[in-house]
Write a protein that binds this DNA or RNA. Structure first.
Length: 119
DNA sequence: TCCATGACTCCGC
DNA sequence: CGCGGAGCCATGG
């Protein structure tokens, strides 16, 4: 199984209303220092519904890419005029609160339990 | 196989 | 706290 496939699996397990850092996902996939590769994996998703922010992986399953943020709580590609605001809107719809362009990672960060990772 | 690329992160100022 | 620079490593050509 490729690193990217693991990334998609992990991101799909992040519950709505919670977020993860790129580094967190990388660590859960077995490569603690591959945070950039996590971003690269998400960038490789195929957009199917741009307006709603829906993007699918090679297996055709929708991946909640919006739940992955920088450890600072900032949206990674805030500079993107389309996906930047979209990501924030999608997260706010799930209950995530933003202040000054960033969210409180201490409050919304998701830490998977052993049971979550089984399977 | 080597090299460039990049939705990141850590560290020193 | 913000900035700039170096390190990181999976992917693709």
């Amino acid at each position: 199984m490729s690193f990217r496939a693991k990334v998609y699996d992990m991101v799909c397990q992040i519950p709505a209303g919670r977020v993860c850092g790129y580094g967190d996902v990388a660590a859960l996939c077995g490569s603690p220092r591959a945070a950039r590769q996590v971003g690269y994996a998400l960038a490789a998703l195929t957009p199917t519904d741009v307006a709603e922010g829906v993007a699918v992986d090679p297996q055709g399953r929708a991946v909640p890419w919006q739940r992955v943020l920088r450890t600072t709580g900032h949206i990674a590609f805030a500079g993107d005029p389309i996906r930047g605001p979209l990501q924030q809107r999608l997260l706010e719809a799930e209950g995530i609160v933003f202040e000054q362009e960033r969210t409180d990672m201490k409050r919304f960060r998701w830490r998977p339990s052993v049971e979550d990772l089984e399977g």
